[in-house]
């Protein structure tokens, strides 16, 4: 069984003056630390998509490339995103509010947000899920979303997939430096040996112990809930 990871990080793309978003210096350490952790667990890390390479087109292409490359049908694919996410209002109708990752886009300014198709949104993720279901029927797709509104991203996955594990942290630590991780990552990296179905309670416990006011949502894949990374 092959295990492949795709990691995406955006830190310096964000700028208050350019797009009104706080830079996130910790994303670089998050990505390198996660890859190191995964290596010890026999994962194959694909080349990360960082800052200017973290566009919706490249992320989608990379996911397609990796999923298409799964030949056995039982591969594990891990998608990790660390950066900003936000809500996108298609209309005033609450049902028309989408969640998206603020992926690299030169046109984004504090006063103008390009069309949602220009970002990696929950719609793109639904396509990834559909593609994975088709190409890797016995596989395990793990999505770790270390960003704001991550809970919103998974909230729209109404129909629970038996192969999909989602670990979402609705928190950012904009004050963190290059020499540290996000709070979620600090907590999560302690639990890589924990079964997926126990991650939620363990993460909650760490958050509580550290007095951290963030929310974390873990949705383990029913087929793999007693397994670990």
């Amino acid at each position: 069984m092959e295990k492949i990871s795709i990691t995406v990080g955006l830190g310096d793309f964000y700028s208050i003056s350019r797009n009104g978003l706080q830079p996130l210096p910790f994303v670089y350490k998050n990505v390198t630390d996660l890859q190191t952790l995964l290596e010890t667990k026999n994962w194959t890390n694909s080349l990360s998509l960082m800052d200017p390479a973290a566009t919706v087109a490249l992320i989608s292409t990379k996911l397609t490339e990796v999923i298409d490359g799964c030949k056995n049908g039982d591969e594990w694919v891990l998608f990790y995103y660390t950066g900003h996410a936000t809500k996108y209002f298609l209309s005033v109708d609450p049902l028309q509010i989408k969640t998206m990752c603020v992926t690299y886009n030169e046109q984004l300014t504090p006063t103008y947000t390009p069309d949602i198709k220009e970002f990696f949104s929950e719609d793109n993720f639904q396509q990834v899920i559909a593609s994975f279901r088709k190409k890797v029927p016995n596989g395990h797709l793990i999505a770790i979303l270390d960003c704001c509104y991550a809970y919103g991203l998974i909230g729209s996955f109404a129909a629970q997939q038996p192969f999909l594990t989602v670990i979402a942290a609705s928190a950012t630590d904009v004050e963190a430096g290059f020499d540290t991780n996000s709070f979620f990552f600090k907590a999560f990296s302690q639990l890589t040996g924990t079964p997926f179905d126990q991650l939620q309670s363990q993460l909650d416990q760490i958050y509580q112990q550290q007095g951290y006011n963030g929310q974390c949502q873990v949705s383990p894949a029913p087929n793999f809930k007693s397994l670990t990374l």
Binding site: P25, Q35, S48, A53, L58, T61
Partner: peptide, 30 residues
């Protein structure tokens, strides 16, 4: 110090043995 750290992280990310020359995405990312 902070920029040096960031450079180290990026160098570490780039130094990936799984880099695929056949992958257009990897080429752009590299």
């Amino acid at each position: 110090a902070q920029l040096t750290l960031k450079k180290q992280y990026l160098s570490s990310i780039l130094d990936n043995p799984n880099f695929s020359k056949d992958s257009p995405v990897d080429k752009i990312s590299a």
